[in-house]
Design a binder for these strands. Structure first.
Lengths: 195, 195
DNA sequence: CGGTTCCTTGAGGATGATCAACGAGGGTGG
DNA sequence: CCACCCTCGTTGATCATCCTCAAGGAACCG
């Protein structure tokens, strides 16, 4: 899902650069803007009392994120952070909602987007809860591989990030990856993971 | 979210009774209908290879369920089962989508509903993953208590159901509940839980 | 009263978390 | 080019927690 940049600018949107690691919005913060990535990558995550992180998802070029609270008057359930240097275009909540009212076709696209998100969250939950480390890791790899069954591709995540997404610890991920390599479920060359 | 019954019947919807335990649709099945509960309760869940169940959610009187796949041409990520004897009204996918096209106000309501669902799934994930049994259980209780902070209410779920929702085992739930009782986080009278 | 479902307890085991070191690689500045 | 730093990866030992298995007990209902 991606709104036309000209349209956004016409409605008064502004672009902003976020450095890698910079926070875009905070868990429990009020939702005042629609955000769309022009270029870069954003991570949404939670942190528990013991400081352990859980990654809710990643968003890339052209994708919007953090929309649900705009529709339902809730606070953000997670924190959003620039995962790399990222250029984001933002529009105020009320103008965004006006665009939706004005263009039913766009509203429909967002409906589809929300449906897509629910679907993938349901799949992610079921893949993480009640499952072995290897299963969780493979599920994670699968969600971000387009051409399933194709040649193994480099997995562009650190072991720590894999851990954060799967709810495991780094060491557990490393040991699981080792076993998966032996079982030929993945490739590891020079510390790099291919799947 | 709930569509007007007259409207549904006008468009050719039909009502159907499901006995407790009856399957309404299966994980990986095609999505051909819009479902709305007239009276009763429906549980959505997954089962892993070892037969362990994970409850994705419960739906009650007046609520619709299983909509996302209708919008995005995906299969059901979970199974839906009547949790009690339940009367459900169903409408074919194409007619449902036509209603949305015809009534932008309804489309908007569904957009809000989907946003609500994403929000609660995000909250549920963060509450379950990386947390202690007691924390998970309390989070579960909180999601289904309207008047937070009010007098303790009877929790209408068996320990097995609590386990299924929190990704724990029955025995773990029982032991955690015992400890929570001692710590006065919950009430237990005659095996019944109050929170 | 008998059957069914749900709850409870204990013992033992498996698994992932934790803690503590250390190794490898890549980039930077002297 | 080398020394340094910083991030990321790795390993082993130990621990805590939750799961598993097995056996009964309690509550409820026809």
């Amino acid at each position: 899902m991606q709104l036309d940049l000209d349209l956004l600018y016409t409605w008064g949107a502004i672009a902003k650069e976020y450095k890698k690691g910079e926070i875009i919005f905070d868990e429990d913060g009020l939702a005042n803007f629609y955000y769309q990535i022009v270029e870069g990558c954003v991570k949404m995550f939670n942190t528990n009392d013991k400081g352990k992180e859980f990654t809710q998802g990643y968003f890339f070029d052209g994708q919007s994120f953090g929309e649900p609270p705009l529709f339902i008057d809730e606070r953000y359930p997670s924190t959003a952070m620039a995962f790399q240097d990222t250029r984001i275009i933002k529009l105020t909540k009320d103008k965004f909602l006006k665009i939706l009212d004005e263009y039913p076709a766009i509203q429909k696209q967002f409906l589809n987007l929300m449906a897509q998100r629910i679907h993938s969250k349901a799949v992610t939950s079921k893949d993480i809860i009640n499952q072995s480390p290897a299963f969780r890791i493979l599920a994670f790899f699968n969600t971000r591989k387009k051409n399933k069954g194709g040649a193994p591709e480099l997995v562009p995540f650190t072991r720590q990030e894999i851990a954060n997404f799967t709810g495991l610890r780094v060491e557990t991920v490393i040991r699981a990856l080792g076993k998966m390599h032996v079982e030929k479920k993945i490739e590891i060359k020079n510390h790099k993971i291919y799947y």
